[in-house]
Computed example of a mutant assay.
Amino acid sequence: MTLAQHLLPTTVVGSYPQPEWLVDRAMLSKSVPRTRMQAMWRVDGEHLEEAQDDATIVAIRDMERAGIDIVTDGEIRRESYSNRFATALGGIDTDNPAIIVARTGQQTSVPRVVGQIRRIRPVELRDMEFLRRNTDRAAKITLPGPFTMSQQAKNEFYEDDEALAMAFAAAVNDEAHDLQRAGADVIQLDEPWVRNNPELARRHAVKAINRALDGITVPTVVHLCFGYAAVVPGSTKPAGYPFLAELADTTAQQISIEAAQPKLDLGALKDLSAKKIMLGVLDLGDPAVESADVIADRIRHGLKYVAADRLVVAPDCGMKYMPRATAFGKLKAMCEAAAKVRGEIS
């Protein structure tokens, strides 16, 4: 499958809303789980896979109907963007998670690393095969990035953070090669935690990302954001990333950024002139569906900093926590806006 040949192709960051009949959305809304949250699923184990398949088809069709050029599987089978992959690896004690306490006092259950991190089996391979069978559009699949996974776990085995991140990177790389062989047109790493701990990220995040992408020949993306709009209020989001220019040294061809809700200063993109930019133009903290005109203005603003042939149009972040009708409306308006601006510059 070839990627969209026209300017300003549209995509999603990854997730799409899971239906209420499949998951307990009230339970889901309370956290972004690091360990497994099996109680979230409303369908029993015997029928869960079939139910997830059906919901995935719904997500794919919504993206297609909205006009998205590069679709995903909506991450429908995941409890969070990272925990399904991270907890499937060898070296993780899934029965006895650790509790870490944030500076705010919030307690979070996280995986405990008690042995060598290794990929025991493919985790998302069936997801990619299912997506490939069910769309004729370009298909993207996402993986949690190695630096982010290393920051979402309690290290009780490796000598330091870098060794842990590099072990996660090797596991991600094994998975990415399987996903490429299964027909992925784009592979994306989600690395939001590089902005949580930029000093540590400067030491080894780029090294870990490049190890995770080693040998991958399809287009690759690194996504970073300030957190889901449903979890992190827009008023607390800064207008700039503390770790962004450093991503110029990654082998990823694209960098995906949240820009609409935090009203990001796009001047920082000058440091990424060799990369394509997946620009967030949907404010997922706004419960209203923005008009195509509003979104078109955001795209035009992006074009002041990024050439049209280097700009990919996307939401700010995953849409997992949104009402489905709102998510669909926003995607449809985004695709209409991209078509409008495309017509102005082609």
Rank of each mutant, 00 (worst) to 15 (best):
T2C: 12
A248S: 05
D53C: 12
S291T: 15
G240Y: 11
T10N: 01
L8H: 15
L224A: 02
A339I: 05
A259M: 07
V58F: 10
K320N: 13
Q261A: 13
R195D: 11
A205K: 08
T11Q: 05
V43D: 14
M128V: 15
V43Q: 13
I255Q: 00
M166R: 07
A338R: 05
D286S: 12
H223P: 01
V231E: 08
D286Q: 13
R298F: 04
W193I: 01
P19I: 13
V12S: 03
P33W: 00
P219Y: 07
Q18L: 12
A339T: 13
V172M: 07
T72L: 13
R324E: 15
A292W: 05
E258I: 02
L331C: 10
I299E: 01
I92E: 08
L279I: 11
V218K: 09
V294E: 14
T11M: 09
D178H: 13
Q253N: 11
M319A: 13
I92V: 15
I92C: 10
L179P: 11
R103H: 13
D174E: 15
R342Y: 08
A165K: 08
R25N: 14
A230V: 03
A26R: 15
A165L: 14
K237I: 00
I70V: 09
P19H: 03
T220M: 10
T250V: 07
V206T: 02
L303P: 11
V312G: 00
K140V: 01
E49L: 13
N173R: 04
A212F: 08
V206P: 01
R36D: 02
P238G: 12
L272C: 08
D24N: 15
R65M: 14
R36V: 01
